[in-house]
Amino acid sequence: MFKAATSGPAKVVTANRLDNGLVVFLDPQGGWTLDIAEARILDDDEIDAALAYGKEQDDARIIVDSYAIDVQVTDGLAVPVRLREKIRAERGPTIVYGEAERTKLTAAAD
């Protein structure tokens, strides 16, 4: 099947959890997952309803600031298009930090 010429890129809905602030993605069951591989991939015509659901979940004090991001889907897995969202989806910075960084620098110095 060819995708309709008018349709935009696939999307997923993302937010931060209210209690601990961590990045989450809307999953197919209406829950929120830390793993973008488990995110629900949305077509154009599903976005509005998903964002409305995000707003409800915001009101229900589960998440904060939900919004949709563009993703590239490869073998069923969503990969964010923008670098900002790629980094968010990685659940942390692109560099090692804290004790792990200290260990790495110590190893490099030896």
Partner: peptide
Amino acid sequence: FKPLRLMNGVYLQLHAY
């Protein structure tokens, strides 16, 4: 809540608060 948390130094950043 946002202006209240900001007055106390709490931001919501890329990955977390």
